[in-house]
Design a protein around this nucleic acid. Structure first.
Length: 526
RNA sequence: GGGAAUGUGGCUCAAUGGUUAGAGCAGUCGGCUUUUAACCGAAUGGUUGCGGGUUCAAGUCCUGCCAUUCCCA
């Protein structure tokens, strides 16, 4: 006994075959117009159709897409056909449908369902109620769907279903499809922009023997033939800089990065990073480049109006601050720029330019910040700890925090005038980090010293400390031009520009714990 | 790692510890010559995430597990 909708639909596949209709034909179906093009056609001057009228020129139209709604009122059936561009209504009248080619009226009535793909041929018309439609002469089944289609009105709301079965989400929720389309356009726009600015897109290893370029825990995997453990990259930075050492002047890589850390609304274990390196540039040039790239991305979605809404907050992406008095080489208009010391002083009253280490420890703990032994070692670690815990989340409008302590920045060049600091920036918007960059350290001896300090921290228990990388030091030894570089988290950028609260809704197939239904058992021996 | 919440037909949601767990949509059958969240009529569809427990009685209370969501570290 057939009971469920899925069983009924599978049975329909069988019935179609018995009636000589192949539910999964292999030949192509060439549409003449997308839904949007049909609508454009009949909005041309002189081509508009009055309610109840048919195209007087009887121009044959071929469209294809998915049935999202079907309304049967006796000897006339209306179908909403959705393609990537838009929706168009099909009007199927018993007396006007071909009896030679394609589906019969009865087959349309009984054997077609929401979710099925069809191709339709007919002429443009407007119904009495004024809906632009296609008066169908031939209707062909292109593919039969055999599980229930998401509800036409409510779509799929359950976040778990949306993320585990993104196809249901895309099929049922237009907003989701639009969001991922926007993501694609953003990424495409960034690539095109950088290429137009003479950057080469290059590809570096995702499997690395030594992981580096960031402070993070890696995924470990194993290469059988070489019998060595390899790491999935936590950043492409060191390889990109080696390309600069080799003679490339402007490079970027836009690709997947893996970090073996927790999952929350802003962290997915694999995410997309953009990294860009530019020879002869310093961190002020790179700040400008970050602004250029992000503004360009925003403009692909919003045009000139860069005042956007993110989670009910208004974010102003217009560049309106002038810093030429303070930083003469930093011309033009910019987002806010503050040194880390200034930002901490503003938010907490603590002036790290004036405090001794002992005073700073006492003052920091008074703020309720619990300090690790590492963080008590130096003013640099302390400053960063206070910034991280008290300031970061307060930075809503786009703000570059510049001049980081050297202790937390092993790959950045020492500051031109402030001992103990490096020429580094991070960009914060809506309380989250969006970009990180610096004047790149290109002195091989200094780089070795920084790695050695990191090794000492690793021994002291910091498992995110940077490992030694002799190949990288050798590359710097060959000579790297003075150079600036930056990274932008693409997922977070897409979240910002599409007003999306969770990273899992800008990653098509986010990392989810496997279920028994998916056929994966979690590994034994935990 | 800590805390809170959620899990009920395919989908969206109801159900003071108390009849046989309801409704809309989808699907099935029937009707309808202009619908568009179509409409009208009928029948069908449930191991209330999984396992224990308390109770005369559990979707509801307790507990363990699973998954998800949100917040915090």
């Amino acid at each position: 006994m057939v009971r469920t909708e899925a069983e009924v639909r599978v049975q329909k596949v069988q019935q179609l075959r018995e009636q000589g209709i192949e539910p999964y034909p292999s030949q192509s179906y060439q549409r003449s117009h997308t839904a949007l093009e049909v609508k454009a056609l009949f909005s041309q001057p002189g081509k508009e159709l009055a309610p109840g009228a048919s195209d007087p020129s009887a121009q044959p139209l071929k469209v294809s897409g998915r049935i999202t709604s079907k309304r049967d009122s006796g000897s006339i059936i209306f179908i909403d056909l959705k393609d990537i561009s838009d929706k168009i209504q099909l009007k199927i009248e018993k007396k006007l449908l071909s009896t030679e080619i394609g589906l019969t009226f009865k087959q349309v009535e009984k054997l077609l369902d929401e979710g099925d793909y069809v191709g339709a041929q007919g002429i443009g018309c407007r119904t009495k109620k004024g809906e632009l439609s296609i008066q169908v002469e031939q209707l062909q089944l292109l593919s039969k769907a055999t599980i229930p289609f998401p509800d036409a009105y409510y779509g799929v709301n359950d976040p778990e279903t949306c993320r585990r079965h993104r196809e249901m989400d895309l099929a049922g929720n237009q907003a989701s499809l639009s969001r991922f389309a926007a993501r694609s356009r953003i990424v495409q726009g960034i690539r095109a922009y950088l290429c137009q600015r003479d950057f080469y897109e290059i590809e570096t290893p995702t499997l690395q023997a030594i992981y580096g370029g960031a402070a993070a825990r890696p995924f470990i995997t194993h290469h059988n033939a070489l019998d060595v453990d390899l790491y999935l990259r936590i950043a492409p930075e060191l390889f990109l800089k080696r390309a600069i050492c080799g003679g490339f002047e402007r490079v970027f890589e836009l690709g997947r990065i893996f970090r073996n850390e927790g999952i929350d609304s802003t962290h997915n274990p694999e995410f997309t990073g953009l990294e860009v390196y530019q020879a002869y540039a310093d961190y002020f040039d790179i700040i400008t480049l970050v602004e250029d790239v992000m503004s360009q991305a925003a403009e692909t979605l919003f045009g000139e109006n860069l005042e956007i809404t993110y989670q009910s907050q208004t974010i102003n992406l217009h560049r309106q601050f002038d810093y030429t008095d303070k930083y003469p080489s930093f011309s033009g208009k910019h987002w806010q720029v503050k040194t880390m010391t200034e930002a901490v002083k503003e938010q907490t009253g603590l002036d790290f330019d004036q405090l001794s280490l002992a005073e700073a420890i006492a003052a920091t703990e008074k703020l309720g910040i619990h300090l690790s032994n590492l963080e008590k070692q130096s003013l640099g670690y302390l400053l960063y700890a206070v910034f991280d815990k008290k300031v970061e989340s307060t930075l809503i409008q786009p703000t570059f925090i510049i001049d980081f302590p050297v202790e937390v920045s092993p790959l950045a060049k020492g500051h031109r005038s402030k001992p103990g600091f490096v020429e580094r920036f991070e960009l914060f918007i809506a309380g989250a980090e969006f970009s990180n960059g610096f004047s790149e350290l290109n002195d091989p001896q200094e780089q070795r010293k920084r790695f050695e300090e990191q090794l000492a921290q690793r021994k002291a228990g910091d498992d995110e400390a940077h490992p030694m990388d002799e190949d990288f030091i050798q590359a710097l030894s060959l000579g790297m031009p003075n150079c600036g570089g930056m990274g932008i988290g693409i997922d977070r950028l897409v979240m910002l520009l599409t007003d999306t609260q969770s990273i899992r809704d800008v990653v098509l197939f986010p990392t989810m714990k496997p279920t028994k239904e998916s056929g994966v058992e979690s590994s034994a021996g935990e």
